[in-house]
Design a protein around this nucleic acid. Structure first.
Lengths: 222, 222
DNA sequence: CCTCCCATGTTGGAAATACAACATCTTTAT
DNA sequence: ATAAAGATGTTGTATTTCCAACATGGGAGG
């Protein structure tokens, strides 16, 4: 387990836990580290959710298959992020999607019940941090989803963009800020068409609402 | 505390906890029950999130105020549901909105840190159920948000409606099913205009996709 | 320097949606 | 039963978005 520490440190799940405590706790929980080739199914659609995972390196796709056998990638999980934790924590009957390695990857698999039950040792600080961190991850995902919903439920493309840009500006705490998405990704995120979005950005610049150059933006009107 | 048991039972947060254990745990946690008049601010925007609440009866609005003093109701929390738990669990600096009684209501206020830390008594089963239930509530909200996002990111109104109706049908496990929203609420939920949605529903019926009568729906084509 | 490639921007016509105004149907109260 | 109020459905028009096709522009590599 020791050798994986640099990877484990990528995740918020292990914040505030020292190396020694982390190794001890992961052993105590019988955590499994799995190296998987691209395409390997890590957690299976239909199975009862008992485990969740952490992407140590590489990435994992969430893939839903319908009854006709059509597969579709719903979203993608990157280094440091959790997967499956929503379904185990919510106590659903079965995974509504599979988790599939999108490239050669390394993941950590944890048994949910053992994580949240905690150990019998009162002094196990590492374990209680782990529980707190897990809850915080789930709570943060919640905030992320809520925020995205605020953007995509805006009626017009212009409103969606302004809502998104304002949130970015607020986060950057600066007048100027750089957005982390290219145009195509941003369009997907906001649920609009790329070229139409580009056109709208141009009009917003023309109308003196915003200024931008590549991914550096500035909001001119408050 | 005893006298509030029927109200407390409204919430999933106390599932699987017997009356005796619940009363004992709530006392142990120094839980506060507050009867509040309509308009009373229960948790304040800007404050550091330390507590979260459960609506025992009545309802609570989430109200955001901008720097100009404009207020807007972002959403509403009804009997049995939690509020503020997302922000405490995610560990944000300050509440981005206030929680205001929408009518004369009764709420239970819990201190987050004490809830998740657990007691020192190993045998306190009630408390560990409470933690599990809290996480499950947060996880379930996560699922709800994800699902809504799947609906509203569909391109056309027809696609949004079909996605929503299919999900309802799946949940009802029956060919026929009743939706819990009136047209205006459904339109708001899906982020479209009411009359345009009504019109689209009519066209979908005309095209033989669905059949409906008031709130009772049926999907004709799979 | 040049070419190729990919991200971004632009444009015009087709399609979908919002909006307003009104019609019809339900429910509630008197 | 009737009136009044509220929810739902319908229609026509003005906007907005989508879509496809093409223009531009800025690296990366030869």
């Amino acid at each position: 387990m020791q050798q994986y520490l640099p990877y484990l440190r990528q995740s918020l799940l292990f914040e505030r836990i020292d190396d020694e405590g982390l190794v001890k706790t992961l052993n105590c929980l019988n955590a499994q580290i799995i190296a998987c080739e691209k395409g390997k199914v890590i957690l299976h659609q239909g199975d009862e959710p008992r485990h969740f995972g952490v992407v140590l390196c590489g990435s994992v796709n969430v893939v839903a298959s319908d009854s006709y056998g059509n597969h579709s990638v719903m979203w993608s999980i990157t280094q440091g992020d959790l997967f499956g934790e929503t379904y185990v924590s919510a106590g659903v009957d079965s995974f509504p999607a599979s988790f599939v390695a999108a490239q050669d990857s390394m993941v950590l698999i944890l048994e949910y019940a053992r994580v949240i039950t905690g150990c019998r040792n009162n002094g196990c600080l590492a374990h209680s941090y782990l529980v707190t961190n897990l809850i915080r991850s789930i709570g943060k995902k919640n905030l992320t989803l809520t925020q995205k919903l605020e953007f995509v439920t805006q009626r017009t493309t212009r409103d969606k963009l302004m809502a998104y840009l304002r949130a970015q500006q607020k986060q950057a705490k600066s007048h100027r800020f750089v957005i982390p998405y290219d145009r195509q990704t941003l369009a997907d995120y906001l649920g609009v068409e790329r070229s139409a979005m580009s056109a709208e950005l141009s009009r917003m610049k023309r109308d003196g609402l915003i200024h931008y150059r590549k991914n550096e933006f500035e909001i001119l009107l408050p």
